[in-house]
Amino acid sequence: MKPWKLLTILLIASFLTACATGQRRVSEPTASLQQLSVGADGNWSLDLRLQNYSSIPMRFESIRFALSVGGEAVGTLEAATTLTIGPESADILNLRLAPSAEGRLHAADALASGRSLNYRIDGTIRAAPDDRGSARDYTVRRDSTLSPVPGLPGVMR
């Protein structure tokens, strides 16, 4: 066999081996509010979007966030979970919250006037690679806005 053919075969084989094994990348997960629904009793149902940016599945064990809207602290979002999210994917965690009086006023005002509602979540996500090891805490701080959804009273996205 000619040396250049042997070299070509070896290069192709090593390339295919490298592609097959792939790199395991563990990236910090993040979270955001996807939806806030105000109930008739004034309590909120929140859809928290958990995003896994890792190249492997991640096991989410718990979340704890201080939530503020319009610059006012409204409550704490806290939950234990057994949610596993695939590589570079997201899933939704539904949470209930009895917000502070100030939070209720801010949400009611935004809904009544059709304006956006600024929010901040600040806290931790406890997660681990699904196939190994113990979990660790990832710090998350997110500032964003939710806007009223036309045709869905009491709902902001």
Rank of each mutant, 00 (worst) to 15 (best):
G103K: 00
L50T: 06
T21H: 12
C19Y: 12
L10S: 12
P3Q: 08
T21M: 13
T81Q: 05
A112K: 11
A112I: 07
Q51V: 15
G114V: 01
V140E: 08
A18K: 09
D143V: 04
Y138A: 08
L36R: 02
S14I: 08
R25N: 12
A110R: 01
R59K: 08
K2P: 13
C19M: 15
G42F: 01
P57C: 04
S55G: 08
T139H: 13
G133R: 04
V149Q: 05
E61N: 10
R126H: 11
S113N: 05
T124W: 15
A73N: 09
D137T: 11
G75V: 02
H106I: 00
R96F: 14
G151R: 02
P57E: 04
G103P: 00
L93E: 07
S14M: 09
Y119E: 03
A107S: 04
E72H: 05
A31Q: 04
L16T: 02
P29A: 05
R142A: 10
L117Y: 00
H106T: 01
S89V: 06
L83W: 03
T8D: 09
V140T: 10
T82D: 11
T8C: 13
I12Y: 04
D131M: 09
L117F: 03
A112P: 10
L11A: 10
A20G: 10
A80D: 15
S144W: 10
E78F: 12
V149P: 01
D131E: 12
T82C: 05
E102W: 00
L152A: 14
R141W: 12
T81F: 03
R132T: 14
L111F: 00
I56E: 10
Q23A: 14
I92K: 13
L105I: 03
L48F: 05
V155Y: 00
S89E: 14
P153Y: 07
I12P: 00
A66R: 12
I63T: 01
A110N: 02
G133P: 05
N94I: 12
N43Q: 09
Q34E: 15
L6Y: 07
A128G: 08
G151P: 01
D131I: 07
R104N: 00
A101F: 05
R141G: 12
L95K: 04
A110T: 03
P99H: 00
D137Y: 14
A127T: 06
L16P: 03
V140M: 09
Y138I: 09
S116G: 10
S62L: 10
L105W: 02
S89H: 12
A18P: 07
T124R: 15
A18M: 11
C19A: 14
E72D: 09
R157S: 13
L152D: 11
G133A: 04
R142M: 12
L33Y: 00
S144Y: 09
R64C: 10
V74G: 01
L83Y: 02
L50W: 07
T124I: 15
R25K: 11
Q51R: 14
G114F: 02
A98N: 06
R157Q: 14
D91G: 10
I56V: 14
R132V: 14
W44H: 00
T76D: 07
G123W: 07
L95V: 03
R25I: 13
E102H: 03
I85W: 06
D131S: 12
D41F: 04
G70R: 02
P150D: 07
L105H: 01
A73Q: 09
P3W: 08
